[in-house]
């Protein structure tokens, strides 16, 4: 398998506050990779750095043969990375369909809008009925579907997902992880950030464990599940 995304010794932070220290990580084509860790471990910062919302202080970010370190967000999207941000961040006063339209802003995606939208509605039939409804009026689970659908509109080579289960009821969390499995099955490469370690390790191939901005452990999902440290600190066994 070829390496799609490769981070080498990436550091980043806000003002005088450093959030990531020399993080190295890779995602191969077709893989689903998890990044887990406690609140404040630097998971969201990591995704923000990859998608160009926050420029790295140092380190390399290579994606599909292109260097993306320091590129603005709109260029990263054009390169083929879509980001489902933390808390979904839909445009609340646009309709579901308009949100999807914004997801397909890139010229190539814009041309294929009708076809892609039909595919997203097929993936999430619930949204079809709500296409003219304002996104801000949807339930949390439905909003997550729109957020994912919006990101999929560009047919990204890599999908970044930031805490898709945060703030949702347990039953809905189950649904969200089912969604992740679906997207996986569709053949997308996914980098998934989650606090919910137990459930993440059930859906990913490999995972990285972040602690205070550093990669503490890395390995296959099975290996991490059996790691005594992970079991004790994160799985509560």
């Amino acid at each position: 398998m070829t390496i799609l995304l490769n981070l080498e010794r990436v550091s980043a932070g806000y003002g005088s506050f450093a959030a990531l220290f020399n993080v190295s990580l890779d995602v191969k084509n077709g893989e689903t990779v998890g990044v887990v860790g406690a609140n404040g471990a630097g998971k969201t910062t990591l995704l923000r750095v990859i998608s160009g919302l926050l420029p790295p202080r140092s380190g390399r970010i290579d994606f599909d043969g292109e260097s993306l370190a320091g590129a603005p967000a709109y260029r990263v999207v054009a390169a083929g990375i879509a980001h489902v941000p933390e808390n979904r961040r839909l445009f609340p006063r646009l309709t579901v369909e308009e949100n999807l339209r914004m997801g397909a802003y890139l010229p190539a995606a814009r041309k294929a809008f009708a076809e892609r939208a039909a595919w997203v509605y097929e993936l999430f039939p619930q949204l079809q009925a709500r296409r003219r409804q304002l996104a801000g009026t949807l339930s949390g689970g439905e909003q997550q579907m729109v957020a994912i659908g919006r990101a999929l509109m560009t047919k990204p080579k890599l999908l970044l997902m930031d805490e898709p289960s945060a703030g949702l009821a347990p039953l809905v969390v189950e649904q969200v992880f089912a969604l992740v499995r679906r997207i996986r099955a569709e053949g997308f490469t996914v980098l998934l950030v989650e606090q919910n370690v137990r459930q993440v390790l059930d859906v990913v191939d490999r995972a990285y464990l972040l602690e205070t901005g550093r990669v503490k452990l890395a390995g296959t999902a099975t290996a991490l599940k059996q790691n005594p440290f992970v079991q004790q600190s994160y799985l509560g066994l």
Partner: peptide, 24 residues
Amino acid sequence: TYLGTAVRAIAQDREVMGLMGVNE
């Protein structure tokens, strides 16, 4: 219009517009 929708969207969430591939 597409651009018009983008204008409304950017007023609602500036940062996320970048994630849509929009050069704000």
